[in-house]
Simulated scan of single mutants.
Amino acid sequence: MIWMKMKMKNKIICILTLIILGCSSYEKRENTNDNLERPEYVILKGINLKQRGEYSEALVTFEELFKEDSKNKILLEEIAESYVKLGDYKKAIFYYEEAMKYSERDVRLIKNLAYTYYLDGNYKKSLESLENLYEKENDIETKKLKVFLLIKNNLKISQEYLENVENKIENFDINFYDMYVNFLIDSGLDDRVKNMLNSFPTRFYLDSEAMNFYFQLKYKYSFDYEELEKELKKYIVLNNNIEIKDEIYILLGEVEYKLKNYKESKNTLKFVSKNGRKNQRYLELVRSLDNENKL
């Protein structure tokens, strides 16, 4: 998950903050010329080990420091993340919860804790953690996780939540819509899929990925091939200034084949790129057209 991938730049900022503010148990330390013994350098050493994938070695470094400074939030998070990487989710949860004591409104920390509960199979606690986020603090990943958790507990609530999220989306997100459509289909709500698709031409007409998603689903759920053929041709003509996806041309060829317009289908496939001609649907359509020619 994206919350688990902390960038080095953010680490350095946190460490500099730690240097400036200091940690309570180290304020009483005597000055020493050996900088490598200072807590910020020990943490940095552990971070470097962790970034190289040496999680066990990083833990040894972190936990030595933990014996002397058990209230260091940065240190607690580093230990938790190391345990996540090692698959020991219960220990990771312990250290995340300890870190939460010193920063209850840390959004990234809340997300990491929720995700670790999810990895540990504790869906109830994962959902409880996500409930601590304000709606504006939820990114697409947390929303997808929340939907999964809601589905585990309450179908009606998850449906309402998804509809609310979908209505507020400004930029098309293929991962969200894949999840949303699968949820609706699995829940026997095919009519809602059609209703959702009706808004696509207005909201996402200039987004080629969104329109490809729209046309592919419409082909699957609508048998009015004549209407779909007109809509596809209109889209291609109106958007001749942008690169039309091969999938759109292949789909139009399939629709024309369904309408028994074999010559038009064959001509449409000429617009498919060299790379697109490796597409399995393209190859199947070409075989079908060849068979029609033999009849």
Rank of each mutant, 00 (worst) to 15 (best):
M6Q: 03
K9G: 13
C14S: 12
C14L: 13
L16T: 08
I19C: 09
S25H: 10
K28T: 06
K28I: 06
R29C: 06
R29Y: 08
E30Q: 11
N31K: 12
D34N: 13
E40K: 08
Y41H: 12
L44P: 09
L44S: 03
K50L: 02
Q51D: 12
E54M: 11
L59N: 14
T61H: 00
L65K: 12
D69L: 07
K71G: 02
N72E: 01
N72V: 07
A80W: 06
V84E: 01
G87D: 06
G87S: 06
K91H: 08
Y96D: 00
Y96G: 01
Y96S: 00
E97N: 11
S103N: 13
K111C: 03
A114T: 05
K124T: 05
K124M: 01
L127K: 07
E131A: 06
N132E: 02
L133R: 04
N138V: 01
D139Q: 07
K143N: 11
V147P: 00
F148T: 10
L155M: 11
L162D: 03
L162V: 07
E163M: 13
E163P: 12
N164C: 07
V165H: 03
I174K: 15
F176N: 04
D178T: 10
I185L: 15
G188H: 15
D191Q: 07
M196Y: 06
M196Q: 11
N198R: 15
P201W: 14
T202C: 03
R203H: 02
F204Q: 14
S208Y: 14
M211P: 07
L217F: 13
L217G: 00
K220E: 00
E226R: 14
E229R: 14
K230G: 00
K230W: 01
E231F: 05
K234E: 00
N241W: 08
I244Y: 05
I248T: 12
Y249E: 02
L252D: 00
V255A: 00
E256Y: 10
Y257D: 00
Y262W: 13
K263R: 10
S265A: 11
R277T: 11
R281K: 15
N291W: 08
